[in-house]
Write a protein that binds this DNA or RNA. Structure first.
Lengths: 239, 239
DNA sequence: CGTACGCTTGAGGAAATTCAATTTGCGTGG
DNA sequence: CCACGCAAATTGAATTTCCTCAAGCGTACG
């Protein structure tokens, strides 16, 4: 169920003003965007799109975390994207969406109806340019993730996911130093779906990392990483 | 070692004129592109870029097959992209490349020095638009591949790869009907690196698919698929 | 207080890997 | 033209890793 539409905000105050698809826009372009934008909220667990749905709108994640997943006919699920604040949802010039999109936490979206947005890409060069940049970054991330899925052990997979979340979250909160603390925005099941593992294997490896002192948690969601570099070493990507 | 530069061709005769990054260009835009393009050939097995190299040029695959791979410090390798004719190599606004790029077969590239090409993206809208489209398609393909890597069995992985090559190759040669024949552009090792498997597992599953009558081959490279739908059913993606 | 859900833990089993030994195909040189 | 040698591919046996199935724990919530 969709929450009530929050009161409209000015783009000037937007937390993702300098991250999102609009980050390179000039004032005139901002005015065009501002005219067609609208906000929508979804609470944790809600679907935003089902695979195969007509793609009515595209937009940016203002706050919260959302996931993209693909499901096989027999029910096997693979997460193929994790959208954090600033990330773009949907793709221009595509009539339908081919992934399930779910709000993993409460999220707020800055939406544009797809058709007007497509026109805007052609009219306002900085939107298209920024979208290309962001898409290329996402492609890099997807390729990085292919290495994780194809070649890493269960332990390395878990370490890689925790390391990525720790660094991406830390970046947003301007944290520095060896130690990192964050709240996992996803369940064990979601982690398993991201990593191509079962829930049980995720749980076992989390326990193993905890036993080895690489992470600490009592609550299941609040994770402390005493030494971020030690965790990085477990990802298999350091020399 | 780089082969001799082939004689310059007109874009009008180019086999990828209506596939590649230039496909939406108007005559005036084509003239701009034509001015800065140059051709390069690499023979099978040659590196085109090493990960970390400065990205001097970008361009399109005119003919042949090239691969993108990522390598872990301990030597594990994962292929993260397979570039077929028409596909774009390199990315604008990136100083270095983060994957190894190798010519899997003899290839010909239509190259542009990166800097002038970046200017061109800004000046000629249809290049940037087409590049966005192509990048979005590649992202879709990468996500599709994440499902293969994360959730499919060895047999399903092999079937998925063969099915993809069969359909992409068949599309280029305008083949129809149940049966498909093609030459594998890659070795067993390359297949293994694409699928996140070992060479031995690839070999065993190829033998199993052959034993079950889903594919036929005597030569190791020339594959016949008697019924393409039967192969598709083995990919796990049909209902 | 009891049920539900998410998570953890254990035991046994299946799938893919590792290690090792052949076999096949192909280019080179006798 | 055939023999040789190398690289790629196949096949087998043993092992490892992760999954499946099953039971139990802890917190949240009716």
């Amino acid at each position: 169920m969709q929450l009530s539409v929050p009161k409209l905000k000015s783009c000037d105050d937007c937390p993702i003003r300098y991250n999102a698809v609009c980050s390179k826009c000039e004032p005139a372009e901002m005015r065009e965007l501002e005219e067609i934008k609208y906000y929508r909220s979804f609470s944790a667990g809600q679907p935003v799109f089902f695979a195969g749905d007509p793609l009515e709108f595209v937009g940016s994640i203002v706050s919260g975390v959302s996931s993209l997943t693909r499901t096989m006919p027999d029910g096997r699920v693979q997460m193929v994207g994790l959208l954090l604040p600033g990330d773009f949802m949907g793709r221009p010039h595509r009539e339908t969406i081919d992934c399930d999109v779910v709000a993993e936490t409460d999220i707020m979206l800055c939406c544009f109806r797809r058709k007007p947005f497509e026109r805007l890409i052609n009219d306002t060069p900085h939107v298209g340019q920024r979208l290309l940049e962001m898409t290329l970054d996402e492609l890099d991330a997807a390729r990085e993730w292919m290495l994780v899925l194809g070649r890493k052990t269960a332990r390395e997979k878990i370490a890689s996911l925790l390391y990525m979340i720790a660094t991406r979250m830390a970046k947003l909160s301007e944290k520095t130093g060896d130690e990192a603390t964050f709240t996992l925005p996803i369940t064990r099941e979601t982690m398993a779906n991201y990593l191509g593992l079962t829930i049980e294997t995720v749980s076992r490896q989390m326990s193993a990392l905890k036993r080895d002192g690489l992470i600490a948690f009592s609550d299941r969601r609040d994770i402390t990483v005493p030494q971020i570099d030690a965790l990085k070493a477990e990802t298999g990507e350091d020399a």
